[in-house]
Design a protein around this nucleic acid. Sequence first.
DNA 1: TGATGGATTACA
DNA 2: GTAATCCATCAA
Length: 210
Amino acid sequence: MGDRARRTPLSALRDLLAGPVLPAARGLLGCEISAGGVTVRITEVEAYAGTDGDPASHAYRGRTARNAVMFGPAGFLYVYFTYGMHWCANVVTGVEGEASAVLLRAGLVVGGADLARERRRSTVERDLARGPARLCQALGVDRTAYGADLLAPDSPVRLSPPVTPVPDSLVAAGPRVGVTGALDREWRFWIDGDPTVSAYRRHVPRKRAQ
DNA sequence: TGATGGATTACA
DNA sequence: GTAATCCATCAA
C-alpha cells in the first residue's frame, strides 16, 4: 500500500489547479492542451483572481451567465468572446466559488499542425498558437467548448501534464498584457526565450488623446 | 436604450 | 498606426 502515496501526474495536476492561482499558472507552463485534433504545448499564461480584488478579472463584479463556469470547480474551461471576433480560453482554478482562472496566452503546436494551419491564416509554424486568440483558433475552440471538463478523458478539450517539466530557471514573470491597471502584479508567466511567446505590448487606448 | 471600450489580431 | 466588429457593462 506504500506506493499509493505516489500520485500520478494527472492527479498532481488536478491538485495544482485546485490550489492558489499563481502556482497553478506557473504549473500550466509545459502542459499540453488538445482539442479538434490539435495539441499545443503551453508556453505563456496569465493569472486572474476571482472576486478577490482583481479589477482585471472577468469575475471581479460577481457571477454572471458569461463567467458562471469560473465560479465552479477547478479544471474546467472558461471561454470568452472579445473584440467582436476573437475567442480566448482560460483554465478555472482554485476552490468552488473563488472564480480564479488562468488565461492561456500562447503555445507551440506539437500535434495536428496540418489541421491548425487550415484553421489559421498564417502558416508560419511559430505563429500558429502565438497569442490567446490564435491559440483558440488553432485548437478550434469557441463557445461550444465553454465549460469543458479538461481532465475528463472523453472531453472535447483535454489537458495533460508536461511531457518534460519546465525548470524554474526557465520561467519568467511580468505584468499582464492588455490590462490597464494592476501593473504591479507580475501575473504573466512564460518560458523564457521560447519563440512562441507573444511580444509584450502595453495597453493602447483606442481613442485618440484629446 | 445608447455609449463605451475590451485578457486581440491583421494589415497599411 | 488603425480597422474589424460583438457583447458586457454602465449611466441615464
